[in-house]
């Protein structure tokens, strides 16, 4: 409740009053808490996430809030530190996909023609390919590392930005204000930069938060399958897979907490994206 009130007080003034607002506020609250956790992990976490800090496999207790894992490491501290890798990978990967997908989509949609058709076909094929499997293929070739995970995930999401930008550009370029700009002598570059791009920004933001939600699940999946970090680095997906062998014996805390964090973070961005798309496209929920 305190969190909710605080979030409302902080975010309400900057978000217009409309349907979808509460979703955006709830999402922003979740994401800010996890960002805060990641930045101040060293201060918040009670123990070193990679060091022995209690009897192995002991259940949650006042001294180890989320219990300890098979090596006696504090699960709570690992959950807090685990937010770092996923946020870093997902933010950098999405920034790269956006930086590639948006300009290509804009140029392709604006000029049209054969090149546009060729690029669209390539992007559509990539889009049709199961994203996690594409990411696995790239990560397997490049080898497991955080940097390579960023490359793999950014490749996967380029088509998402491309398709959205191209679609919007197609509908914008025939609008009256673009015609007017062209009639008054504006060049192609100027039209794209001054007249079309500013109208894309809100959609890009919506797609950004929705595709980040998806990218979080892809990152966690890759990490779960062992393609991102190796022991003893804490990461939610990876920790979930290390807890898996202990599930049949009933050590529920090793998997419950890191896995739930993946969902909560994805939920945060999904709420922001959903809420924003309602705010900016009232009546037309996708």
């Amino acid at each position: 409740m305190i969190v909710k009130n605080l979030a409302t007080r902080i975010f309400k003034p900057i978000i217009p009053e409309a349907e979808g607002r509460n979703m955006v506020i709830a999402g922003l609250a979740i994401v800010s808490i996890i960002l805060f956790m990641a930045i101040f992990a060293d201060i918040i976490a009670p123990y070193n996430p990679t060091k022995f800090s209690g009897k192995p496999l002991s259940p949650p207790s006042p001294s180890n809030l989320m219990g300890t894992d098979n090596l006696g490491r504090d699960v709570f501290s690992r959950v807090i530190h685990g937010s770092r890798v996923v946020l870093m990978v997902v933010f950098s990967a999405s920034a790269v996909s956006m930086a590639i997908g948006v300009p290509i989509g804009l140029i392709s949609g604006y000029f049209g023609g054969k090149l546009d058709r060729a690029i669209s076909m390539i992007m559509d094929s990539m889009y049709a390919f199961p994203s996690l499997i594409l990411a696995i293929a790239i990560a397997a070739v490049l080898g497991p590392s955080v940097f390579n995970a960023v490359i793999a995930i950014s490749v996967v999401y380029v088509p998402t930005y491309f398709r959205m930008t191209r679609g919007q550009t197609l509908s914008l370029k025939s609008r009256l204000f673009v015609e007017a700009a062209r009639a008054s002598g504006a060049g192609n570059l100027r039209i794209m930069r001054k007249y079309i791009f500013p109208n894309l920004v809100t959609t890009v933001i919506v797609v950004f938060s929705l595709s980040i939600a998806d990218a979080i699940l892809t990152e966690a999946g890759l990490s779960f399958l062992g393609f991102i970090v190796s022991a003893p680095t804490p990461d939610w997906g990876f920790d979930l897979s290390s807890g898996r062998p202990y599930l049949p014996s009933g050590y529920w805390w090793m998997i419950t907490f890191p896995g739930a964090m993946v969902m909560i973070l994805a939920l945060g961005f999904a709420l922001i994206g959903e809420g924003l798309s309602e705010l900016y496209a009232p009546g037309r929920e996708r």
């Binding site: 939600a213 699940l217 966690a220 999946g221 779960f224 997906g237 979930l240 897979s241 898996r244 599930l247 009933g250 529920w252 998997i255 419950t256 890191p258 896995g259 739930a260 993946v262 969902m263 994805a266 939920l267 999904a270 709420l271 959903e274």
Partner: peptide, 18 residues
Amino acid sequence: SILAYSLFIPWFGMVLQM
């Protein structure tokens, strides 16, 4: 619908297994 979309498959599967 939003919750279902945000579920992390291995986690959800393990919760059901548990």
